[in-house]
Amino acid sequence: MSTALTLPARRATPGVFVALALTLAVGWLVVTVDGGQLFNQSTTVSLLHVAAGLGLVAVGQTVVVIGGSLDLSVAYVVSLSTLVAAEAMQGGDAALLPGVGLALLASAAVGLLNGLLVTKAGINAFIATVGVGLLLKGYLDNGYDGPAGRTSPALVQSLGYQRVGPVPVSFLLLLAVAAAVGIVLTRTRFGHHLLAVGGDPQVARLSGVRNDRVLVIAHVLCSLCAGLAGVYLAARLGSGAPRVGTEGLYDLESIAAVVLGGTALAGGRGGVAGTVGGVLLLASIDAILNQLEVDAFVKQVIRGVIIIAAVAVHARRAVRKAGW
């Protein structure tokens, strides 16, 4: 049973990495012809920083999407987390760990609320998480006009700017979180139950899976990841930012990354590795277009087209495999 459940996740992974390799190859060629450099230190570093922020959110999003749910409140959770962390730290190193802990606790609480609304109150996940998002937006808009609090300098130096060669610590954090979540999904009972619930809730329930509990845990994990992204952004920006999540379009972009990575929006199929590929793909497109000094608005148009096209190619492959 467990192999049957994990196999589709593995098979879905390579597609996005082929796309990533192609994008990088074509991008490198175009940028070089244009007289620029795609793989120099500074572009690589900024590419990986972009990927780290979006990646943390998207890895969490993968968990709920596999369970057949989704989370549109993540952008506000990111903003909330930056503020909780920065305000708790007050610019001092002493409160570093309590600050991070509080930010994660607040995020987990939002995830718990999302999960309970979806399972116990029976509200559709789309509406439940948009509703919770509105609650958070109200709180943020009411309490904050601009940046607030100060992140501890130690966190700024480590998570915000420290690098190992060209690889930022934040990206290593993403890889670690992705690996951990990947192991949870493929090797633990919770992971198998989650795939079962996403695939067919009725069958899962009849097989003895406690659907509600599995989904609540998934939502808490998702919000925790968003909270972690918030801590990273607080370290990057040096303070709490009430609108950083929404301005980064983390809600919709994270879902796009998840789907690019081959996870089915309907649930029951997919994995974290693909999501990381999807995030890298989005970040690479961004980096290439930046190198070509493409207008910001053109960039958005191109990104829209690429997201649709990539998913369309995916859908075509899936249909052919299914033998339609």
Partner: peptide
Amino acid sequence: LVTTRLRVSSFITTLGMYLILVGAVYL
């Protein structure tokens, strides 16, 4: 057409369209 013929989930199709329209109109 993108949703039905290319079998892209409408969430993604219309999200992409959203990005395209916003970008295009600013541009």
